[in-house]
Design a protein around this nucleic acid. Sequence first.
DNA 1: GCAATATCCGACTGGTTCAGTCCGCGTTTA
DNA 2: TAAACGCGGACTGAACCAGTCGGATATTGC
Lengths: 152, 152
Amino acid sequence: MLKLTKKADYGLMALKYLAEHPETAALSAKDIADAYGIPAQLLAKILQQLTKAGLLRSHAGMNGGYALSREAREISAYEVIHAIDGPFFITSCTKGSKSCELTPSCTIKEPLARVNETIAGVLKSISIQDLTEQEHPAGHAQEASRLIFLTL
Amino acid sequence: MLKLTKKADYGLMALKYLAEHPETAALSAKDIADAYGIPAQLLAKILQQLTKAGLLRSHAGMNGGYALSREAREISAYEVIHAIDGPFFITSCTKGSKSCELTPSCTIKEPLARVNETIAGVLKSISIQDLTEQEHPAGHAQEASRLIFLTL
DNA sequence: GCAATATCCGACTGGTTCAGTCCGCGTTTA
DNA sequence: TAAACGCGGACTGAACCAGTCGGATATTGC
Ligand code: SF4
Ligand code: SF4
């Protein structure tokens, strides 16, 4: 099955929330968690990971919190997921640590790697700002479209 | 993280193997398992699921086994994954059984649903036959390309 | 008929990952 | 100095995955 972890899910929500509140200097983890009902401590750790990855800037102390380190337009969903869940691969042959032992005899890893790259491309083409637009259910906000190339 | 289960992985390998041996009337689960080093009993159950989903035809008894019920061109990777792992959703709000309880307050489920559909589209556009082609590392087998539309 | 070869199907187990919590520490500010 | 906040490791229960076992049924070859 192909599933996104809830951590990545929460991370995207938090970033979107930050993108929607650019006026405030910083928002604390608890603020964001309360806004959506996410467990505060869990979200805190997620935001820490995003900070370590360079997507957020943190500020400790009272009235501290987190703020985007770049423009929402410049942060892709791929980066968020990568920062939280680590490098993702569709298959188990991650080539890094513990590849599946039938890698040599396997004949579908190359095509699947292309599929993997295509999906990564989809996620890379989506920015945090894309998530914030398309409110206005009236729909006159022209929906952004993208073309993805899949080369087998 | 976004990962394909090994069962689906094995299923794709098995179907590809069947597609490459159209001359034989039927191949047993053990035959295919031995060809790749997949645990035989595990593959057997996977093939049973694919049979139940209508992608394969089975025949019990000696010299029995499995054969594709359609042409390789007509079987998509999406169908295989769906048959083995069930309906897949990127997010946990599957709306079916146990959706995550912050579905109402969540503001990113709609865009993520579109992403989900886009990825499904990628998988639907890939057939078993696509996996068998692109052997011939010479590369003169023109690589099939597809355009995927992502509408946020 | 009988034995060998298959599919079929549910139950079971060990291992890994996920979601969430707890607790102690460093930092900033009122 | 104390409250508010970020930081980070350790921990737990639950869910899921990979793989195994055992038995039932169907078909074929002899
Ligand atoms: S090698 Fe083949 S079987 Fe093993 S994980 Fe990669 S794709 Fe799946
Ligand atoms: S509702 Fe929002 S948070 Fe809950 S699973 Fe769907 S997308 Fe993730």
